[in-house]
Amino acid sequence: MVLLLQVLVSGVLLGGLYALMALGLALVWGVLNIVNLSHGALIMLGAYATWFLYTGAHIDPFAALPIAAASLFALGYIIQRGILNLVIRGPMFNTLLITFGIEVILTYLAQLWFSADFRTINPSYAGSNHALGGLTVPYVQALAFAIDSVLTTAMWMFLLRTRTGRGIRAASQNLVAARLYGVDPKRIYALTFGLGAALAGVAGGLYGTVSQINPYIGGPLTAKSFVIAIIGGLDNPLGVIAGGLFLGVVESLTALYVGPTYRDVASFGMLVLILIARPGGLLGRTA
């Protein structure tokens, strides 16, 4: 029983991180109709930015998150404004291909600057736990989870309440109409992609505190983000949270009861089954 609960707790903590990873992907996909294959690479860069600030400038990884987010925002803004805006009205394959090309470039650059070695972000408090009635809750993961929740809620509020957020939602519904109301699509698109990249940056920083990083983690993380976006649908951030938690728990349970090598069978098998049974995602419609 305690074991089961412990697995559930780890699953939920993992799921919070998954949700944050997928949030940026879902935002870009839902609003711009771009499935961004370089999303995982942006997460990877966020992790390296945090690692670099920690080892190079001795900035606490959690304090480094805003800096990572800002740098990734700038990078995302430039990618959309300078490259993706040029091809966005072309056939669908083309956005898939070009983001794949960007992934290849980013991975190469990361390998050039940071080498292919595994890196870890190890602050002094990395190993400490909180014991809670027989359950262990690692501090770092709990803190990461808290940040995930706050950011996801903030994201939702931003889309719902602010003028720019409304502009983004309008652009996702009907670009022509949005233009009539004074939304500049080039800017809004760049902002949206920048936001997606910033979220990836934070997710990467947090990923770096709980797991090892190297330049090649991008691909699998993109795939996992897909799974979550599909489970949760693209409608609102709450769906993505639910998707992330669900996947985290299912993976942890599969690892415990079936075997750790079946983790990916569970998560990707779920993706396939859900798409076949409910193409709109488990929770509602997709764009």
């Binding site: 499935v35 799974v227 990916d264 069978v265 993706l271 396939v272």
Partner: peptide, 27 residues
């Protein structure tokens, strides 16, 4: 089953299949 899906959904479902098969064959 999967050819009822269109566009991105078809793309991602088949991607998922590829990942599942890797994991299944590894076992």
């Amino acid at each position: 089953a999967v050819l009822r899906l269109k566009g991105h959904h078809f793309a991602i479902c088949t991607l998922g299949l590829a990942l599942v098969m890797t994991a299944i064959v590894s076992n």
